[in-house]
Design a protein around this nucleic acid. Structure first.
Length: 430
RNA sequence: GCCCAGGUAGUGUAGUGGCCUAUCAUGAUUGCCUGUCACGCAAUCGACUCGGAUUCGAAUUCCGACCUGGGCGCCA
């Protein structure tokens, strides 16, 4: 029976371990072989005069990163790493790795991102890389748990859609039998439709696709979005849900991922505190004006430099609220007393935007007017507008970038670090 | 799409016109070595992205292509 390496102790007496050959050090009459599985590394010590002929043959034939099965007695030895070692009765080479390797798993020489992504399967063998995806998995678990505890229904919406439903971003066209179709940029319209379906509280974690030719460390053409929509809620209520969720994710990672955080050399993991500050857009612009040189005025989008300047001032997660209606989508609800601003918000990490959301306009006539005022034709929105004519509750929601969440939580410099197989302008393989 | 910086052994690098038969590290191969833990020692192997131009001479300068990193723009 195979034992995970972290569970191998002298008390086991005898053990069988399976894993990858991390390193071999041959001292002559004595050799050391380090075996790694996802739980840890164990030293296999081979006194050449005392082990079977077949073990010597395997030692000679094996290459780094080959998969092996090793059996033998476990001994407590102070001078061995972890205080224990395995003396092999048998070493079976299950899968011999070719040499040389496309990158150095033992990290003596660090590879560049492009090289790493080309051989991602080897890259992820590095504990510090695996740790990112283990933390990402823990975060996903915390998210699912939070939503289930809070009465949300998990939904799955189509990723193949007929038309550009929101305008703005470029879509990827695909061949769909004899029709034109696209990869969906957002589940926005579908989750709103689920409000008309009476589901009241829905969430989805899924891929979104954007055909923008951007070339930055925080944009990808395929991203993972965490989306919610809540009936009978306003923007303030879904903002509370969002900050609550962020705190929950950080707490859960902090509680369950100490090994992974150690592998990532993160010693100061800080759980943010709710509530996050609410910074009106107009004030955000004033901060940016004071701190950076470029010309900024009310009504502009917030540039990356402005985002960083405001983030430095705020020092932690925060919301930007009360956005000008003209720079938010048609479906954002405007304030009754001042229609020039709307009930939309962005949730920011000091480094970048993580989420945006709003209370939606649920009143059919007003919504149609807002579509017109954006210069769009309501007739092409019929599939979206139809549910609003048959009993649509007031509702609000947001979308949160999962990749950026992991990136900012772990202080990664490039969003590609947080995605197993990132898709950008240049990369389609593997 | 624009701008900037790059492309040298499997990996990561040094090298600004001749001293390059190209540096160093890591790796691979072989040999020696009984407590390594980035083991050590010795030998060997392995590279200038592609095409064109300038020049007596190009890794190095110029032009073009392709590729990569970063910034900006774009990004419901």
């Amino acid at each position: 029976m195979r034992i995970p390496i972290q569970n191998v102790t002298p008390e086991c007496g005898h053990a069988e371990v399976c894993g990858w050959v991390h390193e071999v050090r041959d001292l002559g009459g004595l050799a050391f072989m380090l075996i790694r599985d996802r739980t840890g590394i164990i030293q296999v010590t081979i006194p050449k005069k005392k082990v079977p002929e077949a073990v010597l043959a395997a030692l000679k034939a094996v290459s780094r990163e080959s998969v092996v099965r090793v059996t033998g007695p476990v001994k407590a030895i102070d001078k061995a790493p972890g205080g224990r070692e395995l003396v092999p009765e048998s070493i079976e080479i299950i899968s011999l790795a070719e040499t040389p390797l496309p990158l150095d798993v033992s990290e003596k020489v660090l590879a560049e991102m492009d090289t790493r992504l080309d051989a991602r399967f080897l890259d992820v063998r590095r504990p510090r890389v695996a740790a990112v995806f283990e933390v990402r998995s823990a975060a996903c678990f915390a998210i699912n748990q939070y939503f289930h505890e809070n009465g949300f229904t998990n939904i799955t919406t189509p990723k193949i859609v007929a038309a550009a439903t929101e305008g703005g971003t470029e879509l990827f066209p695909i061949a769909y039998f004899d029709k034109e179709a696209f990869l969906n940029q957002s589940p926005q319209l579908y989750k709103q439709m689920m409000m008309a379906a009476g589901c009241e509280r829905v969430y989805e974690i899924g891929p979104i696709f954007r055909a923008e030719e951007h070339n930055t460390t925080k944009h990808l053409n395929e991203a993972t979005s965490i989306d919610i929509e809540v009936s009978f809620a306003d923007h303030l209520e879904v903002m509370r849900i969002l900050e609550d969720l962020i705190v929950r994710i950080y707490e859960y990672v902090n509680k369950t991922c100490s090994t992974q955080l150690a592998n990532l050399e993160i010693t100061d993991f800080a759980v943010p505190k709710a509530p996050f500050p609410r910074l009106p857009y107009a004030e955000a612009i004033e901060i940016a004006k004071k701190k950076i040189d470029e010309p900024i005025k009310y009504g502009d989008d917030i540039s990356p430099a402005a985002e960083r300047a405001i983030g430095a001032e705020m020092g932690g997660h925060y919301f930007i609220v009360d956005w000008p209606s003209e720079i938010r989508p048609y479906y954002a609800m405007q304030y009754e007393d001042d229609p020039s601003i709307c009930k939309a918000f962005d949730m920011m990490h000091p480094r970048m935007e993580l989420s945006s959301g709003a209370q939606r306009e649920h009143r059919y006539d007003i919504l149609v007017n807002q579509i017109r005022r954006k210069g769009l034709n309501p007739e092409s929105f019929e599939f979206y507008l139809k549910p609003f004519r048959y009993g649509m509750p007031p509702h609000a929601g947001w979308g949160l970038g999962a990749d950026r969440l992991v990136m900012t939580m772990l202080g990664l410099s490039n969003v590609r670090e947080a995605v197993l197989f990132p898709r950008d302008m240049h990369r389609l393989v593997p």
